[in-house]
């Protein structure tokens, strides 16, 4: 038998483990934001305006809140936080992190613009009366967003897809890590982000008509996510060479097997998919269990990929 053992001196091996919970949380919240940006315009086209819940109408405002939390996690990960402005003194096309930073910046005006276009008359009035001095500027912004609401909806969907895919591409270009260097991470994280966005919306006080539609989309998204996961691992094991097979083995018998199958696949995908299918068929009112499981599964997926990607160098 032929064996190879490599011993490396000097370097503290913990220095190689570079990204922790901050990146996992950021990828999760970023994906959820992306999902909300896609769902808000699509769902409000499906449900006639007079039947829409307040939660759906104001859903675009949830995106910047979640994204800001995610960006806070990202900031905490930086080793030199004061230099964060350096992301905006450069645009490097070869670095997904660079164009991602710029996408994040575009999301604020896009989501706030769409949200403001959907404010009711009373909501507008209460905002204006709170800051009377700003009311001329505010009403001119509102009249512009109301005139361009369809363009804003399209922009939200486009930026949402870009954000969701970017969370996967961010890891995908790091060719040094066998588990990450796959372009299948982009669709996988995009679909999972859509699912997380649907789950978050279902937890809000929406109508049963809205939740029915969300469940139908979500079941399809979960089926697609299971497919994307399967393709990801098949691609990794068949096309990723020796290192790819070693990385795939982490999930099939290796140290991440139990956590991945129990939390990500069964609790985070299989169970909510079964629950939502039953809820759709039987027209029972949705429980919070399925969306909560989905959110846990979505976070667990990012977490395990961030950790395992660094275990398989």
């Amino acid at each position: 038998m032929y064996e190879t053992e490599i011993f490396r001196s000097g370097f503290d091996s913990s220095g190689i483990h570079v990204w922790g919970w901050e990146i996992a949380v950021y990828l999760f919240l970023g994906g959820m934001t992306a999902g909300l940006m896609i769902i808000a315009p699509l769902l409000s086209r499906r449900v006639p305006e007079e039947r829409q819940s307040r939660a759906l109408r104001l859903l675009p405002f949830a995106a910047p809140v979640l994204l800001s939390l995610g960006m806070l996690a990202l900031l905490l990960d930086l080793e030199f936080e004061l230099h964060v402005f350096r992301f905006y003194t450069a645009l490097r096309i070869t670095s997904p992190m660079s164009w991602g930073a710029w996408i994040l910046l575009l999301i604020y005006p896009a989501t706030l613009g769409l949200g403001s276009a959907r404010l009711s008359a009373e909501e507008t009035l209460s905002l204006v009366s709170r800051w009377p001095r700003l009311s001329p500027a505010f009403s001119s912004v509102l009249s512009w967003t109301r005139r361009n609401v369809e363009a804003l909806e399209r922009l939200n969907v486009i930026l949402g897809v870009a954000l969701g895919a970017y969370t996967g591409i961010l890891l995908g270009t790091l060719a040094a890590r066998a588990l990450w260097s796959s372009m299948w991470l982009a669709p996988l994280f995009l679909i999972s982000g859509f699912s997380a966005g649907a789950a978050a919306t279902m937890l809000l006080p929406t109508t049963s008509e809205e939740r029915d539609q969300l469940r139908r989309w979500d079941v399809m998204a979960m089926a697609a996510e299971i497919g994307a996961l399967a393709i990801f691992f098949i691609d990794l094991a068949s096309d990723g060479g020796e290192r790819g097979r070693a990385a795939a083995a982490l999930f099939f018998g290796g140290p991440y097997t139990a956590f991945f199958w129990a939390v990500v696949v069964i609790a985070g995908l299989g169970m909510p998919m079964a629950l939502e299918t039953i809820e759709s068929r039987r027209h029972v009112n949705a429980a919070v269990l399925a969306p909560v499981l989905l959110l846990i599964g979505g976070l667990a997926l990012r977490w395990i990929f961030v950790l395992a990607g660094q275990a398989a160098v």
Partner: peptide, 15 residues
């Protein structure tokens, strides 16, 4: 210019 984002550390095949 460095923010300490560690993308370079993660991307280096040689550690």
């Amino acid at each position: 210019l460095c923010t300490g984002c560690k993308a370079c550390v993660a991307s280096c095949p040689y550690g």
